Computed example of a mutant assay.
Amino acid sequence: MTMPCRSVERGASAVEYGLLVSGIAAVIAVAVYAFGGVAGEVSLDSCKHITSATGTTISTSCE
């Protein structure tokens, strides 16, 4: 008896979705690696601007 075609297609679909999710995860990892330093600098600059504009000291340091 041969295997129904539907179960084979279901397995192929699962593999395709797995590859798709892996590809998206790789793109996200590369983007975080590439832009991670820039994002850190932006948040540090924002913290310094807020501290200097308000003239208050924050209990945690900006760095």
Results as ranks from 00 to 15, higher is better:
M3A: 15
P4W: 06
R6F: 14
R6M: 15
V8Q: 03
V8G: 02
V8H: 05
E9A: 15
E9Q: 15
R10Y: 10
R10I: 11
R10C: 02
G11A: 05
A12Q: 07
S13Q: 14
V15M: 06
E16C: 08
E16S: 15
E16K: 14
Y17P: 00
Y17L: 13
G18A: 05
L19A: 05
L19T: 03
L20Q: 01
V21A: 03
V21P: 00
S22G: 13
G23Q: 01
I24H: 00
I24W: 00
I24T: 02
I24S: 00
A26E: 11
A26Y: 07
V27T: 07
I28M: 09
V30L: 10
Y33N: 11
Y33S: 12
G36Q: 00
V38G: 01
V38T: 08
A39Y: 08
A39H: 09
G40S: 12
G40R: 11
G40F: 06
G40H: 05
E41C: 12
S43R: 10
S43D: 13
S43L: 12
S43K: 12
D45S: 07
C47G: 06
C47A: 05
C47K: 02
K48S: 12
K48G: 03
K48W: 02
K48L: 12
H49Y: 05
I50D: 11
T51P: 01
S52L: 13
S52C: 09
A53I: 08
A53F: 07
T54P: 06
G55C: 07
G55Q: 04
T56M: 10
T56G: 11
T57R: 08
T57I: 05
T60R: 08
C62F: 10
C62K: 03
C62W: 10
